[in-house]
């Protein structure tokens, strides 16, 4: 389990990194390395060059935005987000998901940008970003573009990133008023890939009816799956035990076509979608504070 030989570059700036990426056809950017390096050690991946982004401080800046949202630098470590009071306040769904990502050691090195660019179907962050309606900022040597999370994940390990492009930051909108959130996943052991996971956001209008529901599922398909029929079933009425039950049933029966592997059959995954969606929506509904603008 030793990797094949590769060239190593450590650019000091984003521009330098983008130039190197454009120059080397078979190069991979190195963020936390928690997925890339094992793949290289197994020799399932063998890039001719690694472009180490860990020296680019500008990519790791995370802070609040004037509109009350958050801007996360792509190279921000998971552990930074996990411990950040700002994240807990402005993106509590993200804060709740962070401890579910692998193990503390991995969170010390892994980055939010790396996880999103890698787009593992069992990863937590893609589903959370889709649920939060995040915007991803992509840059190449010549241009910058902004892609909504829902459009960023295009298939199995596939993203909207074009050759020569880097994900540089993620922008989260301010938490909507009268919202509740919940992140729920089931894994065999603490830190394992989830068998199924749910990232849910519910927003109510002044009449207490559900005005927006975002239910993003992980580990049930090629990437994060938005449970649109479940969300539709919740809209226009106050969340209740029966509406949540019905929504969960739709999520399981119609919104997903899960794969089978040695840990979970498709049928078992469907059952987990049914149960975890119901539990997540119940918790999210219970967390909505009618009058304050920041959900707890």
């Amino acid at each position: 389990m030793k990797p094949a030989a590769f060239e190593y570059h450590r650019p000091a700036s984003l521009d330098e990194a983008l130039a190197l990426l454009a120059e080397h056809e078979d190069a991979k950017p190195l963020a936390g390395g928690q997925s890339l390096i094992p793949a290289m050690n197994f020799r399932l991946a063998a890039p001719a060059a690694l472009i180490d982004l860990n020296g680019i401080g500008a990519l790791a800046r995370t802070g609040g935005m004037d509109d009350g949202g958050l801007q996360l630098g792509a190279m921000t470590r998971h552990c930074t987000l996990e411990r950040s009071p700002l994240v807990a306040e402005r993106a509590p769904l993200l804060a709740e998901a962070m401890p579910c990502i692998a193990h503390p050691q991995i969170r010390n090195r892994g980055t939010v940008g790396g996880s999103l660019a890698h787009a593992d179907p069992a990863a937590e962050l893609p589903a959370v970003m889709v649920a939060l309606e995040a915007t991803l900022v992509l840059r190449s040597a010549s241009a910058e573009r902004r892609v909504p999370a829902e459009q960023f994940f295009t298939g199995l390990f596939a993203t909207a990133l074009e050759p020569g492009e880097l994900l540089t930051s993620i922008e989260l909108p301010p938490p909507p008023a009268r919202s509740g959130f919940a992140f729920q996943e089931l894994a065999r052991r603490h830190g394992d890939y989830a068998l199924v996971g749910v990232a849910a956001m519910l927003t109510l209008n002044e009449a207490g009816q559900c005005s927006r529901a975002r239910v993003a599922l992980l580990s049930v398909g090629d990437g994060p799956v938005l449970a649109v029929r479940a969300a539709a079933a919740l809209a226009g009425q106050p969340p209740s035990a029966s509406s949540i039950l019905a929504a969960a049933e739709l999520a399981a029966r119609e919104d997903v076509d899960p794969p089978s592997d040695i840990h979970a059959s498709a049928a078992y995954r469907r059952q987990l979608v049914r149960v975890l969606t119901r539990r997540a929506l119940t918790r999210a509904a219970g967390r909505v504070r009618p009058s304050s603008s920041i959900p707890t």
């Binding site: 089931l186 065999r188 068998l195 840990h263 979970a264 059959s265 049928a267 078992y268 059952q271």
Partner: peptide, 11 residues
């Protein structure tokens, strides 16, 4: 036994 297998047996 695993949860997956228990689920199968329960079903």
């Amino acid at each position: 036994l695993s949860p997956n297998r228990l689920f199968e047996l329960l079903e």
